[in-house]
Design a protein around this nucleic acid. Structure first.
Length: 496
RNA sequence: GGCGCUAUCGUCUAGGGGACCAGGACGGGGCCCUCUCAAGGCCCAAACACGGGUUCGAAUCCCGUUAGCGCUACCA
């Protein structure tokens, strides 16, 4: 038992991990989650979190995408510990590593033209057979190879898969043991005829060079892993540990893509989501701290993280829960942390300038505090905040139709309210409540019958914080002015 | 087709042979609170894919079946 315990402790040593996206689009939520788990591992157990941009596909890679990856990671707060590695800069080492295998006889040149390979493959498919590469070039006579080399015949380099009766296996941190019979893996290409390395080779060469000791990535790479393990061994290098994370799917169970809505981390950033909420939500897609724990700060996730909680099953991305999560974080985070995010949105919406907000800082913080509990995204706060900033509110037609239905009666009650409010000498919630409830009683109506029309007059809307809070936040002058205007509006309507 | 991975409420998940006629959360429905909307509280509906084993006992271990996904490229 005690030994068991010790094993558990030592099974999560510090590690060098990496996140290795290709810069061919934006930062995808799936990628962000992979980055998060790598980052969490290192912050929890020690080590370094590295970033490698796999830009070997020069056609599809763009600087803009690279920028988007940095921006997304920075927004989320997933910082990397060493300078970014660009795979494209390592071409010479990739070639040198291929050369090493060639010299050792662990790889060989294949002079079969690409077109011939393609023909064979499609012919096999047409016959309903499985195409399998035949090792026809594995043992060519030296003189023939030299001859062709001299002639400048194009060739690819293939890895000579060893021990065809053997099995390549590893203990995956999330799947336990996974094994592949060697006979099921073809002699795969490691260097193209244009002398650029194939993905599986570049990854191994780079991971070795970067000293990566734990490879944590999507489980779509499980089938690549035996190839990579063979490459490590052929190169005479120690194996890293592997952890294969489940995929993220859309609501329809299919792989997450653009048609499922926003899949870029940047989209959520611009929609007014909090990075903490995004991180929390993503963490729960494929990981659980055990028990019923759900809402967590990043620091708490670091504390709780363990590969044991990693899930094997693909998860479906549910935007509803993400929104809920964001609401939770908005309500629970320190007001001073939420404030800058809201301020940016308020300024962007043109409701106020930064100077104005600074000038009434306490008032402003109180307003944000009042609004955040009924918001799910930052924009909800902005929308609700308008009546406290603009001079002229607009009346929501539905609110008018519903709460100001009876013109004369509304006029009467709002008139009394205006008089009462104009006369109030102590503008605080307690006084206002006593005043308005008394007024309702004198008119022989329930509070709601007064508060609802009043709400429309003050905000133009049917929903708002409690009416006394609204009054306090607007101040006496503005509140009374709004009532005057509502009364004018109703008079005009009745006459017209 | 071959190989591999996976399989608990609609969704995210807890569960590690007896504490499970399966717990929490989102979403849905209802009630409470209440001046509205949220938030919050309480309640309801809702799952161990199927079939065989192993075992005194299986959501949990094993084997099949089915389904989904991945790899099977001179893509990454």
């Amino acid at each position: 038992m005690r030994i068991h315990h010790l094993c558990d402790m030592s099974s999560h040593p510090p590690a060098r991990v990496r996140f290795a996206p290709s810069p061919t689009g934006y930062l995808h939520v799936g990628g962000a989650r992979t980055a998060l788990f790598n980052w969490l591992y290192v912050r929890r157990f020690g080590g370094q979190f590295l970033l490698r941009i796999e830009d070997t596909d020069k056609v599809r890679s763009t600087d803009e995408s690279t920028r988007a990856i940095f921006d997304g990671l920075e927004w989320l707060g997933l910082d990397w510990d060493e300078p970014v590695v660009y795979q494209g800069a390592n071409l010479e080492r990739h070639r040198a590593d291929v050369k090493q295998l060639l010299d050792a006889g662990l790889a060989y040149r294949d002079f079969t033209p690409q077109s011939v390979l393609e023909e064979r493959r499609s012919a096999a498919q047409a016959r309903g057979e499985i195409y399998k590469y035949k090792r026809e070039w594995a043992e060519i006579p030296l003189h023939e190879e030299e001859q062709r080399l001299e002639r400048g015949d194009p060739y690819v380099v293939r890895f000579r898969v060893p021990d065809e009766h053997g099995v390549t296996e590893w203990d995956d941190l999330v799947h336990k043991r996974i094994a592949f019979p060697n006979k099921d893996v073809d002699d795969f290409v490691i260097l193209r005829s244009d002398r650029t390395p194939i993905y599986n080779f570049a990854v191994v060469s780079d991971d070795v060079a970067m000293g990566v000791t734990l490879v944590m990535r999507g489980d779509d790479h499980i089938s690549n892993t035996p190839k990579q393990i063979m490459l490590y061994r052929a190169l005479g290098r120690d194996l890293p540990r592997f952890a294969h994370l489940p995929m993220i799917h859309g609501l329809d169970g299919k792989k997450l893509s653009k048609r499922h809505g926003a899949t870029a981390v940047g989209d959520y950033q611009h929609e007014g989501l909090l990075p903490q909420a995004m991180l929390n939500f993503l963490a729960l897609l494929g990981w659980s701290p055990g028990g019923d724990r759900e809402v967590m700060t990043l620091a708490e996730m670091v504390e709780l993280f363990s590969p044991e909680g990693l899930q094997r099953k693909a998860a479906i991305f549910d935007p509803k829960k993400l929104e809920w999560m964001n609401g939770q974080h908005m309500s629970m985070m320190p007001l001073t942390e939420l404030e800058p995010v809201v301020t940016r949105a308020i300024i962007a919406a043109g409701l106020a300038t930064g100077e104005e907000l600074v000038a009434r800082h306490d008032w402003y913080l109180q307003l944000v505090d009042l609004l955040r509990v009924r918001a799910r995204v930052v924009d909800d706060i902005v929308r609700q905040a308008a009546p406290y900033f603009v001079d002229q509110i607009t009346y929501d037609p539905e609110a008018v139709a519903k709460q100001w239905k009876d013109g004369p009666a509304t006029l009467e009650i709002l008139g009394s309210a205006r008089d009462a409010l104009a006369a109030v000498t102590s503008w605080d919630a307690t006084t206002l409540e006593a005043e308005l409830r008394g007024l309702a009683e004198r008119h022989g109506i329930g509070g709601g019958k007064l508060f609802q029309p009043l709400r429309v007059a003050l905000t133009g809307l049917t929903v708002s914080p409690g009416i006394f809070d609204v009054l306090v936040m607007q101040g006496q002058d503005r509140a009374v002015a709004r009532l005057e205007r509502a009364i004018d509006y109703l008079n005009n309507r009745n006459n017209g």
